[in-house]
């Protein structure tokens, strides 16, 4: 309804007002006279210091090239293939309880172990991505050890749950149907 009143001439005028009139009205004239302090030329976006700059790490001399890490298939292709195998394996393990209604305790335990391995890989990747070891070596080590320790405790906890309770699949089913 309102669009019927918005002729092309009005739209042009409105957009002209938006682009020209607004900044002039919003910013006081004194802003154009005073030189604005800028850290870097051509840096036009507002600076938002979310975190303080971390430790500045300079390895070797200033002009050294970055070292290329030694290639090792267990850090690259084998690791990648193992991750995919776990991910692919999770598909039938997730579908089986839905398709069969219930699964054996062994299948349930395998599902639990695969989920924990998959979670461990995911958490590890997140730590590597968001806590760079070059800048924050101690924080990265601390987080990695927290992950390793909690993963062992989680495996113990799931073992307890599998042996003393009804198992993951059956528990989810009972809560979902409650």
């Amino acid at each position: 309804m309102a669009s019927a009143f918005r002729t092309s001439a009005l739209r042009t005028a409105a957009s002209a007002f938006k682009t020209c009139a607004r900044p002039a009205l919003a910013a006081p004239k004194i802003a154009f006279l005073k030189p604005q302090p800028r850290i870097a030329a051509f840096h036009t976006s507002k600076s938002l210091s979310i975190l303080p700059p971390g430790r500045q790490v300079i390895e070797g001399t200033i002009n050294d090239a970055a070292p290329v890490p030694e290639s090792n298939p267990s850090h690259g292709s084998y690791h990648w293939t193992f991750e995919r195998l776990v991910s692919v394996g999770l598909i039938p393990l997730t579908i089986a309880p839905f398709a069969l209604g219930s699964v054996s305790p062994v299948t349930d335990a395998v599902l639990g172990a695969a989920v924990v391995i998959h979670s461990y890989i995911g958490f590890e990747s997140s730590i590597i991505d968001y806590i760079p070891g070059r800048k924050h070596p101690t924080a990265k080590k601390v987080f990695m050890w927290i992950l390793k320790g909690s993963t062992v405790l989680v495996l113990v906890g799931l073992y307890e749950f599998e042996t003393n309770d009804v198992g993951i699949t059956e528990a989810v089913k009972r809560v979902w149907k409650a």
Binding site: V115, V116, S119, G122, F123, S150, G157, F161
Partner: peptide, 17 residues
């Protein structure tokens, strides 16, 4: 979603223990 799901499983397993 992955971190949330895994976090939930970790929290439950540790709490159960």
């Amino acid at each position: 979603t992955g971190v949330a799901l895994s976090g939930g499983i970790y929290v439950f397993a540790l709490a159960y223990l």
